[in-house]
Structures are given as C-alpha cells and as structure tokens.
C-alpha cells in the first residue's frame, strides 16, 4: 500500500566543496529552494491557473449574474435562492441520487464478488485484463454500444427478451427505465475496474490469518465475515469514496443517449449544469449549482470517513 504520509526527511546532502560558513547557514534554512522552484514551477503554474484560480473564480461567479457576454454582475445569494425554488434542481438531485444508489449498490456488490473470484478461483492476469476492458473504452463508446444493443426495435437485448417471452422494454425511452438503464451501463463499464481495486486490497491481507482460521476450523462464511470483511474495510471505503464521487458526476452516458429525457427522467445534476451554463448562457447559475454539487460531495466523503472509520486499520 502506498503511504499517504509525507516521506521521510533526510538531511539533504550537498557537495562539500567551497561552501563558506555563511552560505551553508543560509542554505540550511532555504534548503534546495532555488532548484526546487525550477523543478516545481511548471506544475505550480498549472495548479494555480487551472485548479486554484478556477476554484476561487467559480465560487465568485456563483454570486453573480453572468451570460459570457458582458461582465459578471454581483447579485449576492440570488442564484442560491433561485436554486432552492427551482423544481428542476430538486428533480435533478432526485434523479442523480437514484442513479448513484443503483450504480454504487450493484457495482460494489458485483465487484466484491468478482474480486473474490479473482482471488480465490482464478489468479490469472488474462482474466483480470479481460474484465478490465470495458473501463478502458471511452464512456461515449460504451454508451453508444449499449444504446444500440438496447434499441427497442432491433436491439439484441430486446430480441432475447422476446425469445424468453418478456415484453420489450424501451430502455432509454421509458421514464421509469431511463436511469436504471444508464446506471446499468456504467456498472458494466466499471465493475472490472472496481473489482481490481478490491482485489488489490485482498492481496494485502496477510495469508497467515487465513491459515490460522483454517486450522481453527472456521467455515468459509465465517472467514469471510470475520477476517476478509473487517480487514478489507479501509480499502472498500476508499474505493467507495472514489466511486461515489465519480458517480455523482455522471454526464457522458446521459449526454450521448437520453439527453436528460424522456421529459426530465434522466436529467442528472451535471447535465443540468451543462444545460444552464452552455445552452442558456447562465454561468452564474451554473456555477452556483456546481458549488452545491461540490459541497454535497465533500459532505458525502466526510460522512463516509467518519461513520465507516476509514482511517483506522483493524490489522494491529
């Protein structure tokens, strides 16, 4: 496991030649600052220009009226007040939440199952690679592929449903099915990747624990719940923080397939932000919505860390 803590501090060694006592003292305080600045400068510029300043500017814009043309006009919390009264926002929140629950629920359970299979049944890089394949292909491609396979008229899935004797389903065109379908498509894309992350966690569990449990006569079921799950918890938590944060930002699949429809059934929050900012040129409102999305994500991550005691390790 990689250490997130900051690396060991070793006194930097430098060339012994010709450093007068005064210079040495000065350098001890600043260390390798001059060289370091050279090394870190490009990344620092990128960080300031494309991460730090946009974050601040985004917060500022959320308090303004801004339609790209002209200058932003300060309007205080007007955008936020409007958001709370906007039925489409509440709809978008509900739709997004439904998506996240379906997506994360199925994805995590399936991925855990796959990871256990990878670990106990087939330790083969080839199988792991094959299962990872959908993740490497663009969202857009995956979305188009399933859009075709789930087509109402001649999609293969509806053909199969018909053979079995189940009536056809308009997967992307039905208000009830649109979100579950999008969720399913992304479970398909991400399950192998998530399984690999969990698999890495399984590998980190010391093998002797299983041997001891085995000697003690524990059943597989007991071993799973008493050893695997508690020790896997930190990993599972990290995986879930990452996947849930990603899940809330669902955009590509919706943009390519349903475009928010039918009616408002799949207008997820990021798609709504996109529409407000770019179709309706309402950048202030769009920024305020993204601030809210940001806050939601921060709260979710915080709650997960707190309630699942993520930073504690049972292995001690």
């Amino acid at each position: 496991m990689t250490t997130t803590s900051v690396g060991t501090r070793k006194p930097a060694r430098r060339s012994t030649e010709s450093d007068g006592p005064k210079r040495t003292a000065l350098r001890r305080g600043l260390g390798d600052l001059r060289v370091a600045l050279l090394f870190v400068a490009p990344a620092l510029v990128g960080f300031v220009l494309f991460y730090l300043v946009p974050t601040i500017r985004g917060i500022y814009l959320s308090f303004t009226d801004y339609s790209i043309l002209g200058n932003p006009v300060w309007v205080g919390v007007k955008n936020y007040v409007k958001i709370f009264q906007d039925k489409l926002v509440w709809n978008a929140m509900g739709v997004t939440l439904e998506y996240v629950l379906l997506n994360i629920g199925f994805q995590t359970v399936i991925a855990l199952g796959l990871a256990l299979l990878m670990y106990h049944v087939a330790k083969s890089t080839l199988i792991r690679g094959v299962l990872l394949l959908p993740y490497l292909v663009a969202n857009v491609i995956v979305a188009l592929l399933w859009f075709w396979m789930l087509d109402y008229q001649i999609g293969i899935v509806n053909q199969v449903l018909q053979w079995i004797g189940i009536p056809r389903v308009a997967f992307f065109g039905n208000e009830f099915w649109a979100i579950p379908t999008v969720a399913f498509v992304n479970v398909w894309r991400h399950m192998g990747y998530t399984a690999l992350l969990i698999f890495a966690g399984l590998q980190a569990i010391p093998g002797h624990l299983y041997e001891v449990a085995n000697l003690d006569g524990a059943s597989k079921w007991q071993t799973f719940w008493k050893i695997t799950m508690p020790l896997l918890r930190p990993v599972l938590l990290l995986v879930m923080v990452v996947t849930i944060t990603g899940s809330f930002q669902i955009f590509d699949t919706v943009a390519v397939t349903t475009q928010g429809g039918p009616v408002n059934a799949s207008r997820v929050i990021q798609y709504y932000i996109y529409q407000r900012a770019f179709s309706q040129q309402d950048f202030g409102y769009g920024s305020a919505l993204s601030v809210i999305l940001f806050i939601i994500l921060a709260i979710v991550a915080f709650l997960q860390m707190k309630f699942l005691r993520g930073n504690e390790n049972d292995l001690s």
Partner: peptide
C-alpha cells in the same frame, strides 16, 4: 485538488 469535482473547475476554465 483531487477532491474538487471536474465540473467545478470546468466552467471557469472554459472562460
């Protein structure tokens, strides 16, 4: 910045 969602910086970066 790993925690900042892409959409959040996307609008100002577009500008």
């Amino acid at each position: 910045t790993l925690l900042v969602p892409a959409i959040f910086t996307a609008l100002p970066n577009f500008l």
